[in-house]
């Protein structure tokens, strides 16, 4: 700041231009520091969205062979495989998200009850999340193996029928009914066992992550709120229902959005364990998109499919924001 002492106008002017130059240098330096990150994000994150939109409007073989507008999209909407894959994806998410979050919250709440060895437990359950997906999926394929897997060996050991697990297209309710001699119609037989096997694996991977986040959320709830509720006579389930659960809702909401988006894009373990089979029972949208490009080299069609999947995710996120988001309590 120019001080109030007698300064002639020339030196003030000189001072401001020096300062302006310094300021300009700082701004230039600041943007130079931002440039590498911004450039990478622009080129590989933002630009591909628009480029993908363009590709999806083309019959694409290395370049845009023919501009076909909505052609790929109309074809997708008439493609029964696309509807099937969206159905599989929805089933997968609808079963695995509540199981993952419910189990995660349950265990986190148990751990929060001043459990000995809590730290050791957290380290162990977090292990599946950090190890290589391809490796753990390969191990699980062996565990699930119909003839040489550990799971079937255990089932036989306790006198139960071995199952085909990842190779089973029949629904789980149908299989259960069969053990008591009933035959269920197709619509009532439930999700195929192959899909359920993938869900069990997914739960195994992500519960540790959910527990970690839930525990941090539980730790952020002020202790005096519990004390106040206890003074009012609340305990056990009511304490959880009326104090813990509402105050935990921002954490739960974050996990819900994150998990739904994650399950809609699940790919690595499905590709390693089933490649979408048997008989398309586990062919999620993500697998279909990949396959259309990787095996059939249909870049335009694959890009169109990914925009459709994105639209579905977007709609779901907006709905979750409307309905679940309005129940979130922020203090």
């Amino acid at each position: 700041m120019a001080t109030g002492t007698a300064v002639n106008s020339v030196s003030v002017k000189g001072e401001t231009s020096v300062r302006r130059q310094k300021r300009l240098r700082e701004v230039a330096l600041g943007y130079a520091l931002l440039a590498p990150a911004l450039l990478i994000l622009l080129v590989f994150q933002v630009f591909p969205v628009f480029y993908g939109l363009y590709i999806s409007a083309c019959d694409w073989r290395l370049t845009c062979r023919e501009f076909i507008g909505f052609g790929n999209y109309t074809r997708a909407f008439q493609d029964s495989e696309m509807w099937h894959s969206l159905g599989v994806t929805a089933t997968y998410a609808l079963i695995s998200v509540p199981i993952q979050l419910g189990l995660g919250l349950f265990i986190a709440y148990l751990l929060f009850q001043k459990i000995r060895g809590q730290q050791a437990f957290r380290v162990l359950v977090f292990l599946p999340y950090i190890t290589s997906t391809v490796a753990s999926a390969a191990i699980w394929s062996q565990l699930y193996s119909p003839d040489k897997g550990l799971i079937n060996a255990a089932l036989k050991g306790i006198g139960l029928q071995p199952l085909k697990w990842l190779g089973e297209t029949q629904g789980i309710f149908g299989l259960m009914a069969k053990t008591v001699g009933l035959t269920l119609p197709g619509w009532a037989s439930g999700p195929p066992l192959a899909l359920v096997s993938l869900i069990i694996y997914t739960t195994w991977v992500f519960v540790g992550y959910d527990i970690t986040i839930f525990l941090a959320g539980l730790g952020n709830i002020p202790a005096d709120l519990y004390d106040a509720a206890k003074v009012d006579g609340a305990s056990g389930w009511r304490l959880f229902r009326y104090v813990t659960f509402p105050l935990l809702s921002p954490t739960t909401f974050f996990l819900l959005i994150f998990t739904v988006i994650g399950t809609f894009q699940a790919f690595n373990h499905i590709y390693v364990m089933t490649q979408g089979g048997p008989a398309d029972a586990t062919k999620t949208a993500s697998i279909l998109i990949f396959e259309q490009y990787f095996q059939f080299n249909r870049a335009g069609y694959s890009a169109a499919l990914s925009f459709i999947l994105f639209a579905v995710i977007l709609v779901l996120t907006v709905i979750q924001n409307r309905y679940a988001g309005s129940r979130v309590v922020y203090d």
């Binding site: 969205v49 480029y51 993908g52 590709i55 809609f264 998109i289 925009f307």
Partner: peptide
């Protein structure tokens, strides 16, 4: 700039997969 950076995580990886490979 910060808001823009945060907004880029809204773009799911699947959406940009094919165009990125083409690039």
């Amino acid at each position: 700039v910060f808001l823009f950076i945060l907004a880029t995580i809204m773009v799911p990886g699947d959406l940009t997969l094919v165009p990125k490979v083409v690039m």
